[in-house]
Design a protein around this nucleic acid. Structure first.
Lengths: 182, 182
DNA sequence: GTTCAAAAATGAATATGATTCGATTGCCAC
DNA sequence: GTGGCAATCGAATCATATTCATTTTTGAAC
């Protein structure tokens, strides 16, 4: 249903692909925007779960967080579905804040308790991070930032956790296990 | 021309306000989007110049940067024109990157040379900062983040410059001279 | 198996608003 | 005055999201 991005597709195309009439979509979603948000939320939640599967075995809670945001960045810049969505960045960022927030905020707190991060307001840090991350993904997609800067992007975002520059660099460059696809 | 936000207004309203025919706008701007971008760029550039006026007298280059992003946050959350524009955050962020970038990136470099910041890629830091800042402004406007968090927002963003947590807190809480209005 | 009311689905019609374009106007050089 | 060029106009076009009167499906009751 989100093959080419909800925004790019017309409601007619979406309805056709779903094998329903044009009006039927509206008995499931109040508006096109709401449909887009629902698709986004599904996408986000799925990715969050796949990340959890991998980070389950990590020792360092700071690494759980770092791995998560890196995978989001990789997915947002690599996956065709996501690329289409990127030009509604405030909608994406918000969906990300809500769907992945429970995990991310938990990790920020855990890592703070473990003395790795120094985050007093985890919600705020996560809010800023989502916007910056999606913005960075958009910039890479538009060739405004080279894909090779991904490591540095993650490093900068980790700096917001108060971990300190050197530790951030180290954390961003740790090897990353593959994530389950789809 | 941007009384209520370019996006909210129809092209007919815009044309009317400018006392021209509906089609005439298109001899100046290729599309509504291009018009919105032009308005945005003007807004950004004006603000950048007004900020320069104040920071001209600052001693500490780090404070120049900190003051600038704080004023942008205040303006984006306080000014009616800006609020309307916020829900196209990727467009705003991009205009901000381009129009205020020359100043901001200069300040990031100056402060780094002065040993206050530790920024290796000023463009990247500025890119992330614009997205996070506009995202934060949107969050405040939508009551997702209390306006009282502004100081902390600036603190977190300053952390991306590698200045360190304590120095960031201090920098964000310095008194701020008034800026020229309009 | 038939009946019928409620629920779900339909898609043609509506509404909104960006964009186009042929006609019109204003302007200037000669 | 006149020809021609550029700017301007706004009605017509086009694209799409959304609505809603009608049709179809469902499933409970007999």
């Amino acid at each position: 249903m989100s093959q080419r991005g909800v925004d790019a597709a017309t409601m007619l195309e979406i309805a056709e692909r779903a094998d329903v009439g044009a009006g039927t979509v509206y008995s499931y979603f109040k508006s096109k925007d709401e449909l887009a948000i629902a698709v986004l939320e599904t996408l986000m939640h799925d990715l969050a779960l796949r990340i959890e599967e991998v980070t389950d075995t990590f020792e360092d809670p700071a690494q759980v967080y770092a791995y998560g945001i890196r995978i989001v960045l990789d997915t947002a810049t690599g996956d065709a579905h996501w690329k289409q969505l990127l030009h509604r960045s405030e909608v994406i960022s918000d969906a990300m804040f809500r769907m992945m927030g429970p995990f991310a905020i938990r990790d920020l707190r855990r890592a703070s308790q473990a003395g790795r991060f120094q985050v007093s307001d985890a919600e705020l840090v996560w809010r800023l991070t989502t916007h910056a991350l999606i913005g960075a993904a958009l910039a890479i997609t538009n060739d405004n930032v080279p894909p090779g800067s991904k490591n540095q992007i993650i490093t900068q975002l980790l700096c917001m956790t108060g971990i300190g520059k050197n530790a951030a660099v180290e954390l961003a460059s740790r090897p990353r296990p593959e994530i389950a696809s789809q």
